[in-house]
Simulated assay, not measured.
Amino acid sequence: MVPLRDRNPTVITPYITYGLIAVNILVFLYELTLPPAQLEGFFHLAAIVPRELSASFSGISVNQQVPEWMTLFTSQFLHGGFLHLAGNMLFLWIFGNNIEDKLGHLKYLIFYLACGALAGLTQWFFSPASPVPSLGASGAIAGVLGAYILRFPKAQILTLFGYFVTTVPAYFFLGLWFIQQAFYGIASLNAPANIGMESGGIAYWAHAGGFVFGAILGPMLGLFDDRSPSEPF
């Protein structure tokens, strides 16, 4: 199931969304220039390492050049591969513009970074001793999805189901996505070696947490203040 494009127009030019996509791409291009050993070190420096974050919260120095709390933000611009980057940027391009239109540029940037940081903390809460770096924009983008399902629940999403293309309402597509993340997150509690961040896989709790925090922070920042621009119907 892959979203191709929504039918909800945007009014303002989504400079922040475009800028975030550009920064993510530039950082990934930088990653490609690093040999494997240096890339591993770069990830360890700028990604969230839950074990080290736990130590910093306890006042224990981990001898890192970047303060551990800052990795809650720097990790949002790192990606482990081209498909990881492409999938995240596709979702950000599809859904981010309309949320930026509703919140405005500055509040949207604050919203995006806050959702990413809170998503990272959600994953840390469930795996505080993990030595595996957690990285990617998916937690912040999950926050965008959480706001989108509230603001545009009936917007039609052109979606690829296997070999078939159809349209489904946003509440169905994004609701199903959230249920999947929550289910796999719960499953990972009983199988940490096979699924979730312990295996270096998908940080499902970060996705679910980002989605919930996006649904909370969006209205607080004015998601529903102006109902006239960029309505889907």
Rank of each mutant, 00 (worst) to 15 (best):
E100F: 02
D101H: 00
K102P: 00
K102I: 04
K102V: 04
K102C: 05
L103A: 07
L103E: 11
H105K: 14
L106T: 15
L106M: 14
L106V: 15
L106Y: 15
K107H: 11
K107Q: 15
L109H: 06
F111E: 08
L113M: 11
A114N: 02
C115P: 07
G116N: 08
G116S: 05
A117D: 06
L118H: 13
T122R: 07
Q123L: 10
W124C: 03
F125H: 09
F125L: 14
F126N: 10
S127T: 12
S127R: 14
S127H: 10
P128Q: 10
P128M: 13
A129D: 11
S130L: 03
P131C: 02
P131F: 05
P131H: 07
P131E: 13
V132R: 08
V132D: 00
P133R: 04
P133A: 03
P133V: 03
S134Y: 02
S134R: 01
S134D: 06
L135F: 15
L135Q: 07
G136C: 03
A137I: 02
G139H: 03
A140F: 03
A140S: 04
I141T: 02
A142I: 04
A142W: 05
A142M: 04
G143Q: 04
V144H: 05
G146V: 10
G146F: 00
G146I: 09
G146M: 09
Y148E: 11
Y148A: 13
I149A: 11
I149D: 13
L150R: 04
L150F: 10
P153Y: 07
P153S: 13
K154P: 02
K154T: 15
K154F: 10
A155E: 12
A155R: 03
A155W: 04
Q156G: 08
I157E: 01
L158W: 04
L158F: 05
L158R: 06
L158Q: 09
T159C: 07
T159D: 00
T159H: 06
L160P: 00
F161D: 12
F161S: 12
F161Y: 15
G162A: 15
Y163E: 13
Y163W: 15
F164N: 08
V165Y: 15
V165I: 15
T166L: 14
T166I: 11
T167Q: 06
V168W: 05
V168N: 01
V168L: 12
V168D: 01
P169K: 03
A170G: 03
Y171E: 09
F172E: 12
F172P: 00
F172A: 08
L174E: 01
G175I: 01
G175S: 08
G175H: 01
G175W: 00
G175L: 03
L176F: 08
I179S: 05
Q180P: 00
Q180C: 07
Q181P: 04
A182M: 05
